[in-house]
Amino acid sequence: MHELSLIESMLSIIREEKAKHGMDRILRVRVVNGALSGAVSDALAFGWECLTQEGDLQGVALEITDAPLKVVCGACGKPFEPEDKHYMPCPACGEILGHTVTSGKELYIEEIEADIPEDGEPATGV
């Protein structure tokens, strides 16, 4: 529902990194979106399209990698990948409560592909 504001935060991070690394033109941005992040990948893609129609990041490609949900059982410690986000019986002991999420909560920018001139001096101390 608030994917547009998430994209706005992403754009400001990207602009910071662009300046920091002396990037000329950004070609592609890769984002990792976990199954439990609350952000819907399709809505992120749509928000990105809307907010990069013009301006300095016009036409930059957004690539979204969906990170699967992985948990460790709260009772027996078995790691497993639940099929359902809300009801997660452990395949080994059947416990449904108290699991620790090891993957799936994340939403982060993993990498940026850009033209960086040879003399593009990375700024320091940012």
Partner: peptide, 16 residues
Amino acid sequence: MGKTVTIVRNVMEANE
């Protein structure tokens, strides 16, 4: 062909 820079920054970092 551009260079790829690894960033790894949480999108929610400003709020956090």
